[in-house]
Design a protein around this nucleic acid. Structure first.
Length: 507
RNA sequence: GGCGCGUUGGUCAAUCGGCUAAGACGCCUCCCUUUCACGGAGGAAUGACGGGUUCGACUCCCGUACGUGCUACCA
């Protein structure tokens, strides 16, 4: 076995890629990069009922957006392919057969109805979920309970069957988790899991073990929900004779819903108004779209940084990490044991931090699509002035529109009520004079504008505070935005004049 | 029900036996700003419970409670 670190992410293409998924990728990626190893993407398209069209491509695109690209994947290929489980079917069959031959697995011919009947008959208050295990298997139709001739005959008749692992009795299975330390299970309480389904596809249990072995995976990080099936996997490594090559495991804590308890689901996002997927996902079956962090206006590195800190920190209190820093400082041993509730406010705070620290050109490139999707065209030079002027009040990239739309189009909804009460002839005269005066300004900067404004104010005996708000309402439409004179400078003489005249006629 | 895993402010969390228990998000107050934000300065708010071990326990051990995950021919 080579000493090179190899990790993998093995998503099942059943829908969008959620926070937990991206975090698993991220931790894998960081670990691989840190050790100069390989990061492998393989696709678990083994369940035909759950497989969703387009989901694989979606996953690949999410990884691209986050800049967590694998070294080996179905797309890129690699020395250990194929990387789609559907293309590796024969391998799983081969190893399932080996397990049967060695007496570690067996054929089970039970129909769905027979399984249901068994579960129904055995169900009680003390045992609400009867298992197919060392106790019940003797009463079922399998190659352990049936006579050998019967088994041969059933197989010859092409009777559908599954292959189940034969869990041993009275054994304690132990392993060391990189995050949780030593964990042990009693084999009596784990059931005879299906390894190979009737359609010939493997279940996750067989597939991970076979693939991790053949692809020489050295470290395996996955969600905590897999912990209870770890003994099955461990026994498979042993039964297949690969135990000395078993990867080191780390079970990652769950990401929980912000309110109440439980695993974060896509429904929670819909319900509470935040994304849970990396990018927009439209389910081709239902045509329903679930919003993603990208489309809602997150910067990919902010998203990745936020996710890295949801379950890990370096112990110093530092919260902002570049990907390079994360690669350097990440350690799987410092990943927390307990699940973390997702906090969307905190996630937005990360994005705000990143927006403040990005250079203008980059920010312009990111903000542009969010402006242009509103149907306005813009050039980078103009946009960069705006980005500089308003970025400190933008949390999401989409805020560049909500906070800056008045730079592109004259405001439609004017908050006239805000100035009407205190409007009078004197102010009217002031603005009429000022707007005429604007024409003579040759040096169109906020400083000059403000100077001329102040001068006229003095001349007409008005207080600055009385005129500033009306001017803002005229240019912006509401009580928000950066300095008014800066706004006037950016939108230019013509636009400023027009907006003032337009409102004056309405007052 | 069984089994696994977990439990420090509302949330994310530091601490690896010396704690007057960091920091961040959010919240509140004030300052800055003749808008709204940003920013700055403060503030309220925490060790689930009960037993041990120890000179000393948030930290180690045991029990209880609570939470969560699994208990599919799903991953």
């Amino acid at each position: 076995m080579s000493d090179k670190v190899r990790v993998r992410f093995a998503p099942s293409p059943t829908g969008g890629l959620h926070l937990g998924g991206v975090r698993t990728v991220l931790y894998n990626y960081l670990f691989a990069r840190q050790h100069g190893g390989d990061f492998v993407l393989r696709i678990e398209d083994t369940d035909q009922n759950r497989f969703v069209e387009g989901a694989e491509e979606y996953i690949v695109n999410c990884l691209k957006w986050c800049d967590l690209e694998p070294d080996e994947s179905p797309e890129k290929g690699g020395a250990y392919g194929p990387y789609r489980q559907s293309e590796r079917k024969h391998l799983y069959y081969e190893y399932a057969q080996k397990l049967i031959d060695a007496g570690y697995a067996y054929y089970a011919f039970d129909t769905t109805e027979e399984l249901e009947k068994m579960r129904h008959d055995l169900r009680s208050d003390e045992n609400p979920n009867p298992q197919y295990d060392h106790q019940t298997r003797t009463h079922m139709r399998n190659s352990l309970s049936l006579r050998p001739e019967e088994v041969v005959s059933l197989l010859n008749k092409n009777t559908p069957y599954v292959v189940r692992i034969k869990m041993p009795q009275n054994m304690t299975v132990k392993f060391t988790d990189m995050i949780r330390g030593e964990i042990s299970f009693d084999t009596n309480i784990v059931d005879d899991k299906v390894l190979l389904k009737a359609d010939g596809f493997p279940t996750y249990h067989l597939a991970v073990v076979v693939d991790d072995y053949l692809m020489k995976i050295t470290h395996s990080f996955r969600g905590e929900e897999w912990l209870p099936s770890a003994p099955v996997h461990l026994l498979l490594w042993e039964y297949l004779g690969w135990k000395d090559q078993m990867p080191q495991w780390a079970h990652l804590p769950l990401i929980l819903k912000p309110d109440g308890n439980g695993k974060l689901s896509k429904r929670d996002g819909d319900r509470l108004g935040f994304p849970v997927f990396a990018m927009d996902w439209t389910d081709p079956k239902t045509n329903e779209t679930t919003h993603g962090f990208r489309e809602i206006g997150f910067l990919p590195d902010a998203f990745v940084n936020m996710l890295a800190l949801l379950g890990w920190n370096d112990g110093t209190g530092q919260e902002i990490f570049s990907i390079e820093e994360l690669i350097k400082k990440f350690s799987i041993e410092r990943v927390h044991k307990s699940g973390a509730k997702f906090d969307y406010e905190k996630a937005k705070w990360f994005n705000h931090q990143y927006i403040q620290h990005k250079d203008t050109d980059t920010l312009v490139a990111y903000a542009k699509p969010f402006i242009e999707e509103k149907g306005v065209t813009t050039d980078d030079k103009y946009l960069s002035q705006i980005v500089t002027a308003i970025k400190d009040r933008c949390t999401l990239l989409s805020d560049f529109w909500s906070q800056g739309s008045f730079f592109f189009i004259a405001p439609e909804n004017i908050d006239l009520a805000a100035i009407k009460d205190k409007w009078n002839e004197q102010k009217k005269t002031f603005f009429e004079t000022w707007v005429k005066d604007l024409d003579s300004i040759t040096e169109w900067t906020h400083a000059t504008l403000e100077q001329r404004f102040n001068d006229l104010l003095l001349q007409q005996g008005l207080k600055k505070g009385d005129a500033l708000l009306p001017l803002r309402i005229m240019l912006v439409g509401g009580k928000y935005g950066p300095g008014v004179f800066l706004i006037a400078e950016i939108i230019g003489k013509k636009e400023t004049t027009e907006r003032i005249n337009r409102i004056l006629s309405q007052l």
